[in-house]
């Protein structure tokens, strides 16, 4: 391993990134991919990408990069790696929840008590799998990881408006899917 001062500094920065973001990136990838092993592998790949960028002092991971920029770069890399993996895996499920017949009833549906529903990972996972992967990514970035709409838009390569709309629809669809998954368990807190 090279031991120049620049390399040592890069290694220090990589170590910091791993410590700060490995948990968040792994959780994000696990949510998008639905596969812990693959999420673990891709988390490692993201840091490999970061290491190469750090060695070359590449933008936006140059030595003076602020933390939000680093975070956005890592999540963007993770997102794209996840999408590439899903394309290769070809198991992306796009089960439409919004067929017109059903959707037309939505405004009249009284939403069941979500808080009274047992929140279990399997049910949430199953509901997430019924969403398009970019919707899942948008949900996790905005809701779980607290990224702004602008940051999320940059990661998803879309606009702020499109991101807000995607988030709204993703949540509506997830709530509907989750409610279905828990149709027989309502109130079973």
């Amino acid at each position: 391993m090279a031991t120049s001062p620049a390399t040592t500094a890069a290694q220090t920065r990589l170590t910091g990134m791993v410590e700060r973001y490995q948990g968040a990136l792994f959780a994000f990838l696990r949510g998008v991919l639905g596969d812990e092993e693959q999420a673990r592998d891709l988390t490692q790949d993201v840091f490999c990408d970061a290491w190469r960028a750090l060695l070359r002092n590449m933008m936006p991971l140059a030595s003076d990069a602020p933390e939000p920029v680093i975070r956005q770069w890592l999540f963007r890399t993770a997102y794209h790696r996840a999408m590439s993996a899903l394309r290769r895996r070809r198991i992306v499920r796009w089960e439409p929840l919004d067929d017109p017949e059903e959707a037309s009833l939505t405004p009249k549906i009284a939403v069941p008590s979500f808080e009274s529903v047992v929140v279990e990972e399997a049910a949430l996972r199953s509901a997430l799998e019924r969403l398009a992967p970019p919707d899942v990514a948008c949900l996790l970035l905005r809701v779980v990881h607290g990224l702004t709409a602008a940051e999320t838009a940059a990661i998803l390569s879309t606009s702020v408006e499109a991101t807000n709309k995607r988030l709204s629809r993703a949540k509506q669809r997830l709530l509907l899917a989750y409610t279905r998954e828990n149709g027989g368990k309502e109130g079973a807190r």
Binding site: G23, A27, F114, E115, V143, L175
Partner: peptide, 26 residues
């Protein structure tokens, strides 16, 4: 709104990054 708030909370619990950290080897 309460349902959506609960949904947010569920997502945070399950995908908040506090569990299953992979402990990467730098």
């Amino acid at each position: 709104l309460a349902a959506y708030d609960a949904l947010d909370a569920a997502l945070a619990r399950q995908y908040g990054g506090s569990t299953g950290s992979p402990a990467m080897d730098v």
